[in-house]
Structure formats: C-alpha cells, structure tokens
Amino acid sequence: MQLMHYLSLAAILFSIGFFGVVTRRNAIAILMSLELMFNAVNINLIAFNRYVTPGDLLGQIFAIFVIVIAAAEAVVGLSIVILIYRHWRGIDVDRINLMKW
C-alpha cells in the first residue's frame, strides 16, 4: 500500500478523536478520544518509518515513547477524574464549571 493511504487513515482517526474530545460530556470518554488521537499520531510515525526511512528505526522508537507517555498521561488523568468524582458525585464535564466567570 502506499504511504498516502496510511496517512489518510491516520488523518481520519485523528479527526474522529478530535470530534470525541470536543463533543463528549463524560470525562473518561474524553480521555478515550484523546487516546484515539495519540494512536493516529503513532500510525503516522510508523508509516513514515516504513516508507521514508526503512533502515532507520527512529520512527518506531518515537512511537514507543509516545505510547509510554500516553500511558503516563492517562494515569494522571484518570486519577484526577476519580478525585473529581469523589467531590462532585458525577463526571459530567459540563457541570464542572467552577472557573466560570
């Protein structure tokens, strides 16, 4: 397959993730959409590695790092969500507007 296909796939996945982030009310759902965006980025990296610099493994290493960071970020995010849930008894982000004017 050609590079362009993979890139298009990544683009579509990214947009879906973006839609999810912007739209969903559940905090955990937002985090999951964020994971989708991360994965789209990873697909891009691996695809470039395969088609542009096959001998060099830089893209794959980069993708591994991204996965690890995403994992760390998910951990922290979820702990925050749990904390919010403890206080608000719900995780509807639309209701969490303390910083409102």
């Binding site: 912007v22 937002i30 982000v93």
Partner: peptide, 11 residues
C-alpha cells in the same frame, strides 16, 4: 462571558 468554565468549550 467567554469563560464558561466548561472544558469542552476551551478545548
């Protein structure tokens, strides 16, 4: 009034 306090708006 831009500051709605809602994460979704900010994002």
């Amino acid at each position: 009034y831009i500051q709605s306090g809602r994460l979704a708006h900010y994002l």
